[in-house]
């Protein structure tokens, strides 16, 4: 069956025709699932642009459908030669400089499932419209704009291969309309013949178990009740945002509740503990601010901002790609 669809696709390629575009929402849904059926190799460039500094990451990627991926880092220099192999829900981070292999298990088994369930939130908050077709890496692409229904602003541009429906490029814009992130695939080649050896692990490395992430759950009420303390939640969120997941994790024996809110593209995380464990910002350039008249500090990491403050023994951190003003407003609504 998979081979037949591959042949049909190739027949379309050979005839030189670009298929007529489906409705944009259908195309987006298909694009989200494309990696499960399309194998490819290429080079990915990721830019994250902040007011203070920007980061660029470049990696070569080999993906064999449905769920094997190897990313081999080329830049930044610190990561040169490191790689990450994903096999289903297990991720192996290969750190060549420290000669170690870090194994992480995603307890949720399938992030794609979560992404699929949040596709409804995306479509509820954004209008998907076509922009003129373009080319990326020599491939014809459909360009879909995701315009926020409340502000009218274009928040994301997605460039989708007209034949395979794989996402080849996407750009995300901040609330002031500036580009804050871009991911672009270069030198894409579709191939069904990626050898199994690509996804094998190198020998001779020390094996280390990675950080165990808490089991995320979409049952927010249950997560909040399992925190072991009375959690505070925001009374204000930007329009279209709703809770999508949460977990409770122990960091240095401090039970920490993590709630994540999203409108389908933008996300914001609220962390809280009641063990008087403050956020350590000593590795960052932290700037003083206030959250509802409480002294607070914030740091910017590319387009992501983290605001940390406390109320008695309760410590909070709010993280997201929203403006500082918006984050402070959410933060102020968390306090009783």
């Amino acid at each position: 069956m998979a081979r037949n669809s591959g042949l049909l696709l190739l027949a379309a390629v050979l005839m030189g025709g670009t298929p007529a575009p489906p409705p944009p929402a259908d195309l987006l849904r298909d694009a989200m699932n494309a990696p499960e059926r399309i194998s490819y190799v290429g080079e990915v460039q990721v830019l994250r642009i902040g007011a203070e500094r920007s980061d660029a990451t470049i990696y070569r990627i080999e993906h064999r459908a449905p769920d094997r991926t190897r990313r081999w880092y080329v830049a930044p220099q610190d990561l040169y030669g490191d790689s990450v192999i994903t096999r289903g829900s297990t991720t192996y981070s290969i750190d060549v400089k420290r000669e170690r292999l870090v194994i992480s298990q995603d307890e949720d088994a399938d992030e794609q499932i979560a992404a699929r369930s949040n596709f409804g939130i995306l479509m509820a908050n954004y209008n998907a419209v076509y922009a003129p077709d373009e080319t990326v890496s020599g491939r014809a692409v459909y360009v879909v704009l995701l315009n926020n229904k409340y502000t009218g602003q274009t928040t994301m541009r997605v460039h989708i291969d007209a034949q395979t429906h794989l996402v080849l490029e996407r750009q995300q814009y901040g609330s002031n309309g500036s580009l804050i992130a871009q991911t672009r695939m270069e030198q894409i080649r579709y191939t069904n013949a990626i050898p199994t050896a690509v996804f094998e692990l190198p020998a001779g490395l020390n094996r280390v178990n990675g950080a165990a992430r808490g089991q995320e759950s979409t049952d927010i009420a249950h997560v909040i009740s399992s925190a072991g303390f009375t959690a505070q939640v925001p009374k204000y969120l930007p329009e279209g945002f709703s809770p999508i997941a949460g977990d409770v994790v122990s960091i240095q024996d401090v039970p920490t509740l993590h709630l994540i809110y999203s409108d389908g593209i933008r996300t914001v995380s609220l962390f809280q503990n009641e063990k008087n464990a403050a956020a350590d910002l000593s590795h960052y350039h932290a700037i003083a601010t206030t959250v509802a008249e409480h002294p607070a500090r914030y740091v910017e990491e590319g387009p992501t901002t983290l605001v940390a403050w406390s109320d008695g023994n309760r410590h909070f951190a709010l993280v997201g790609d929203l403006s500082l003003t918006e984050l402070e407003k959410i933060g102020a609504s968390v306090l009783p």
Binding site: A31, E111, Q252, T256, T267, A277, D280
Partner: peptide, 28 residues
């Protein structure tokens, strides 16, 4: 105790992979 802000930033990035068209952490 203190909690390194890197942990918050990383955990936030990891969980955003649950949002469509967001790959989460570019680098683990």
């Amino acid at each position: 105790p203190t909690i390194d802000a890197a942990y918050y930033l990383d955990d936030h990035a990891a969980l955003t992979s649950a949002v469509p068209f967001n790959e989460g952490n570019t680098v683990p």
